[in-house]
């Protein structure tokens, strides 16, 4: 309060929006600027991570990112191996981000996402993950048909198919041209998928108009706005947080979570829900920066008092060793 400038004043806030295509995310930059924040867009390809002895930093074509108060990331999960170490640096610099460390790995790996949600008490379709297709009929006795079967090779899901009988499942397994590293079998739940957009404690939702009889593909533009119930709201917010996101799309069916993703389909949600989602996102980011600023301020004040004291006669007499000033 005494020495440092607390970021409660929006005009002092610097927020970086990181994405892959400008047209997909520039609405957020605009919304932040309208609220008075200094917002900038930068393509994730323009980032380079550097690690030296005792120091690591994020280098971009516009310089270092240290001056930013928040970084809003909207990149695909396959960039997880790049984004994860980047998130660690962002957190170290006490910059707010909508994604926590580990979130992108959780999203990139569907079996891991499944296990993470289950261990956090979040209801998902019953599933079995296995590396071996031998005795598959016996293995999947624990599940009810229809089953969504997925094959895994390396770090990716190769193929997926809904199977209704054990013989269809065998056909799926035998259709694999190469040896797979694993399989994910999930009970396929029929019903209407609800796609929820979680922004902190706010949830916007789109419900599919038709039941998903043969596919888990969602076409948001063919959905209708949906008012989530309290229990559904709790489920989707918990799911987003369990995976590591403050802002995420969470799809549910009959109150079971089927996927969590960091990318917001902005256009679709704006159209169907008749909202300006980017303004809610902007409000959320600004609020987070304010909260972060308040937490930082007293610590910064103590450091500055200590520094000032160490320069006095008493400070020199009583201090045990010199400390370098933290930048």
């Amino acid at each position: 309060m005494l020495f440092c400038q607390i970021k409660t004043n929006v005009i002092n806030m610097k927020i970086l929006v990181v994405g892959e295509k400008k047209k997909n995310v520039f609405a957020y930059v605009k919304a932040l600027r309208e609220k008075g924040a200094e917002a900038k867009y930068l393509r994730i390809l323009k980032f380079v991570l550097v690690s030296k002895h005792n120091k690591s930093f994020i280098k971009t074509t516009i310089g270092l990112i240290d001056k930013y108060d928040a970084i809003f990331i909207q990149s695909r999960t396959s960039l997880g191996p790049f984004i994860e170490p980047m998130l660690e640096q962002i957190e170290e610099k006490k910059i707010y981000s909508n994604c926590k460390i580990g979130s992108y790995y959780n999203s990139l790996n569907e079996p891991l996402q499944n296990v993470t949600l289950t261990t956090n008490g979040i209801s998902c379709p019953n599933s079995i993950i296995t590396g071996n297709e031998k005795n598959i009929e016996k293995i999947i006795e624990r599940l009810n048909f229809p089953i969504l079967a997925k094959s895994i090779k390396g770090k990716e899901i190769q193929q997926s198919m809904i199977v209704n009988t054990p013989s269809e499942l065998n056909v799926f397994i035998k259709s694999m041209k190469h040896e797979m590293d694993g399989y994910l079998f999930k009970e396929f739940i029929k019903g209407r998928i609800i796609s929820c957009l979680v922004i902190g404690n706010k949830v916007f939702a789109i419900e599919q108009t038709k039941e998903n009889n043969d596919s888990q593909k969602i076409n948001l533009m063919k959905g209708k706005t949906y008012r989530v119930r309290d229990d559904e709201k709790e489920i989707v917010i918990s799911a987003a947080n369990a995976i590591g996101y403050d802002i995420a799309q969470v799809d549910i069916i009959n109150k079971k979570v089927i996927s969590v993703s960091p990318i917001i389909p902005l256009q679709e949600f704006n159209k169907i829900c008749s909202e300006n989602i980017e303004k809610y996102v902007a409000d959320f980011l600004i609020e987070k920066v304010k909260l972060q600023g308040e937490k930082k301020s007293y610590k910064d004040d103590l450091k500055k008092i200590r520094k000032a004291f160490s320069k006095t006669l008493f400070g020199r007499l009583f201090s045990k060793k010199k400390k370098t000033v933290i930048e």
């Binding site: 079996p111 296990v115 590396g131 624990r142």
Partner: peptide, 13 residues
């Protein structure tokens, strides 16, 4: 690792 099954249900893991 390939012989292990990870089973997730409402009862747990």
């Amino acid at each position: 690792i390939d012989k292990i099954q990870i089973i997730t249900t409402e009862k747990g893991l």
